[in-house]
Design a protein around this nucleic acid. Structure first.
Length: 225
DNA sequence: AAATGAGGCAACCGCTATCGG
DNA sequence: GCCGATAGCGGTTGCCTCATT
């Protein structure tokens, strides 16, 4: 339902948009993204707002390189659960599913290529990133076993994961343990923010009346790594 | 110093599940 | 029980940056 005369904005977020989004998320909580998007005046979809918040603006997010522990955890959990990125992400506090997904893609693609080249240095018909990215690169270990491609032995992702997991001496963390030990990111629930809804009028004025940006600690979000 | 390619990351898209009326 | 709205998830794409030639 978008009888809008104006197009929704797409593409990279500006600092102003970020600050506005932060204000309104604090106001409304992490719910009603569609409503939030409209009320805030951001010319973005609720979906886009949510994604921006979850993947970048959330104060509890950790940015920067994965630690070796995190890498091991990702490997282990992916071996267990496959491409359940959101599930895996819940076990890595401060990391998002998108981040882990991206990490896995690049990390594993590189490892796979390394392994292929080291095992079969003469195989020049190595799949390019584009071809491998479409469906096979991240697919869960369904097609196990070694694939024969035009006489060339190719490792399946299953095997690759297996070898990597073995080589890296897995952390040994079970799913259950993880579920207990790694609660989701602490975040204000809609109910928790309901009280603020009653103050929306005032706070809305404050927000639209432009609270000082420094009050929002935007430096936390736009930190340079 | 410039051109090219690869890698990394942010954002979008489509689908599915869940919830409320 | 049905339907529409909303939220969440996984896959994919496009852009930017850095390294290499």
């Amino acid at each position: 339902m978008a009888p809008k005369t104006e197009e929704m904005r797409k593409g990279p977020w500006t600092e102003q948009e970020d600050s506005l989004l932060v204000r309104f998320v604090r106001l409304f909580g992490e719910r009603r993204w569609d409503c939030l998007a409209k009320v805030s005046g951001l010319n973005r979809t609720g979906k886009s707002c949510r994604l921006r918040w979850v993947n970048y603006l959330h104060p509890d997010l950790r940015h920067g390189r994965m630690t070796p522990e995190e890498e091991h955890l990702v490997l282990d959990l992916h071996a267990k659960w496959g491409n359940r990125w959101s599930r895996i992400a819940r076990c890595l506090p401060g990391r998002t599913d998108n981040e882990i997904k991206n990490y896995w893609r690049t990390h594993m693609r590189r490892k796979a290529q390394e392994r292929k080249t080291s095992a079969y240095p003469s195989s020049s018909s190595s799949s390019s990133s584009s071809s491998s990215s479409s469906s096979s690169s991240c697919s869960p270990p369904a097609a196990a076993g070694v694939v024969q491609s035009e006489g060339v032995k190719v490792y399946s992702m299953d095997e690759i994961w297996d070898e990597i997991a073995a080589a890296d001496s897995v952390t040994g963390l079970t799913a259950e343990e993880c579920g207990v030990a790694c609660p989701p990111l602490p975040c204000p629930k809609w109910e928790d923010c309901s009280e603020s809804l009653w103050k929306v009028d005032d706070e809305f004025k404050m927000a639209t009346g432009l609270l000082p940006v420094d009050d929002l600690m935007l430096s936390d979000f736009h930190h340079s790594d």
